[in-house]
Design a protein around this nucleic acid. Structure first.
Lengths: 237, 237
DNA sequence: CGCCGCGTTTGATCTGCGTCAATCGTCCTG
DNA sequence: CAGGACGATTGACGCAGATCAAACGCGGCG
C-alpha cells in the first residue's frame, strides 16, 4: 500500500522525466521554457508530520508537490482545526492574495516538492499568458472543489460526509493511478474528522457502520471499496 | 436603507463613470483598452429573486455585478441548499473549470450587471497579462474567502457563525461605502441560514439572543451593530 | 517475549441544534 | 379597515453527533 502511493510522483532529477508533469502547471510549458524553468526550482523533502509552510507566515515560495500527500489546514485561536484540503502530486501551492499564507501545510507521509522563489517565478511567468492561464485554471478548479466542500460541511450528514469523502478520494487517486477498489488512506482518522467537520469518534463509528453494511472493508492503511455503487448513492443523496 | 445599498454601484451608461470600476477587474485596464472592452459588454437588469444563471447550464457569459446583491448557491438533489457566497458590486462571475456553472446565482434585490460573451472576452484578454493577473487575483481572493468559510461551516458554533457573518458582512460593505454601524441585510433569514449551515429557526434565535445581550439591535431590513467589539470577540474565539 | 505508547474503536451519556408547530407582525389588497 | 399571505419569531421536544471514558490492537523496543 505504501509502495502504491509512492508510485505516484517522481524522484527523477530532471523535469524531463518528471512523472507528475502532465498533472502540474508545468504541462503548459514547452521544452525550452521547461529548461529555463528547471533552473529556478529546488527540490526539497519533508518527513511525515513536518510542516512545509505555516499560515500567516510570509509566502515567499511556490511549490509543486511531486510526491506524497499533504494536509492543508487552518486553526482557530482555541486550537480547533479545519483541514481545507489534501494535496496530491501535481498540485500547485503557495498562491496568496495577501502575501501571507492563507493556511498551513504539512506532510502526511514522505513528501517531495519543487520549490520556486516567488520573485523569480513571477518574472518567468510575466510574459507567458499560457502559463498564467494554466495557473488560473488550477485556481478555478480549486475554487470549485472548495464550494463542493462547503456543501458537504454545511448540509450533509456524517454518513454522507464519509461516503462522499471516500468516493471523491478514490476519484482523485484514479486520475493519476487508474481506478482501483483499494483506497490507501495515508491520513489519520483525526485528519479525516477535521476535513469533514466531525469528531474522530464519529468518523470511526461511521467507518465501522459502512463496513457492517458491506460498503467497505477496513484494511491496514486504508479501505477496500466493496460496493462502490452503494457508496456513490450514499454520497449523492 | 434600500437607498443606502442602491448607492453602491452605478447606472451610468458608460464605463467612464462606472462607480464600481475601481473594485472590479476593469481597474486593470487603461483608457483605450476600456473603450474597446466597453463595446463587448451589454447591461442587463434582474428583478428580486430572478435567476441570473443556473448550476450545470453552459456558462457562455462572464458578469460584472454593478448594482445589487446576489446569492450564489448549490443544491443537493433532495433540495437542501448551501449558499456559497453573496456577490456585491464589483464582483466578477462566470469563471468555470468545466464550461458549466459550478453554482446558481440569483438576484436578492434589484440587480444590474455587465455581461460579456466568453468567446469575445477571452479573445480580448488573450494578450493582456495584466488583466489575466487581475482575474487571477480575484480567483485567489475568493479561494481564501472560501477556505475561511469552510472553517466556519465545519468548526464554529451557531453563535460564532452568526457573529462572524455580521462582522465580515460589515467589513465587506465598509470597503465600498465606508464604515457604518447600521448593516443592511437584503437577504432573508433563510438565505443567512443556508449560508451558515444552520436552520432559519436557529438563525432567528441567535439574532434574538445577540439583541438581548446588547450586541445588536434588530431593525427593519437589517441590524445595528451596537457593540462591534463584542461581536468581533464572539466571531474570533 | 512482554511491555509500552499511540492511534483506533466502542460504549454511555449529554447537548446544541434540528424538527415540528403555533403565533406574531408587517405589508398588501379588496 | 378587515382579511390573507408571508417572513420572522418563539416554544416544546427529539435526535445526530459531541463528549467523556474505557478498552483494543498493533508496532517498536528493551
Amino acid at each position: 500500500m505504501k509502495a502504491f502511493l509512492a508510485a505516484i510522483g517522481s524522484n527523477g532529477q530532471s523535469c524531463a522525466d518528471c512523472l507528475v508533469r502532465p498533472f502540474s502547471i508545468c504541462a503548459s510549458l514547452d521544452k525550452t521554457e521547461m529548461q529555463e524553468f528547471e533552473r529556478l526550482s529546488r527540490h526539497a523533502h519533508f518527513a511525515p508530520c513536518e510542516t512545509v509552510f505555516a499560515e500567516e507566515e510570509m509566502a515567499i515560495s511556490f511549490y509543486n508537490l511531486i510526491e506524497g500527500v499533504m494536509r492543508l489546514y487552518k486553526l482557530l485561536p482555541d486550537g480547533r482545526r479545519q483541514i481545507v484540503g489534501f494535496a496530491l502530486p501535481g498540485d500547485f501551492l503557495g498562491m496568496t492574495a495577501s502575501g501571507r499564507n492563507a493556511f498551513s501545510a504539512d506532510a502526511i507521509n514522505a513528501v517531495a516538492v519543487c520549490r520556486f522563489s516567488k520573485v523569480s517565478f513571477q518574472r518567468f511567468a510575466e510574459d507567458k499568458p499560457h502559463l498564467l492561464r494554466r495557473i488560473n485554471e488550477f485556481a478555478i478548479r480549486e475554487l470549485s472543489q472548495a464550494r463542493e466542500h462547503m456543501v458537504l460541511l454545511g448540509r450533509r450528514s456524517a454518513e454522507e460526509k464519509v461516503a462522499t469523502f471516500l468516493v471523491s478520494w478514490r476519484d482523485r487517486l484514479a486520475r493519476q493511478n487508474g481506478a482501483s477498489a483499494t483506497l490507501p488512506l495515508p491520513m489519520s482518522r483525526q485528519d479525516i474528522a477535521d476535513y469533514l467537520g466531525l469528531t474522530i469518534e464519529t468518523v470511526s463509528r461511521t467507518f465501522t457502520k459502512l463496513e457492517r453494511v458491506g460498503v467497505i472493508e477496513i484494511i491496514s492503511g486504508g479501505v477496500r471499496l466493496l460496493d462502490p455503487a452503494r457508496a456513490e448513492a450514499l454520497a449523492a443523496a
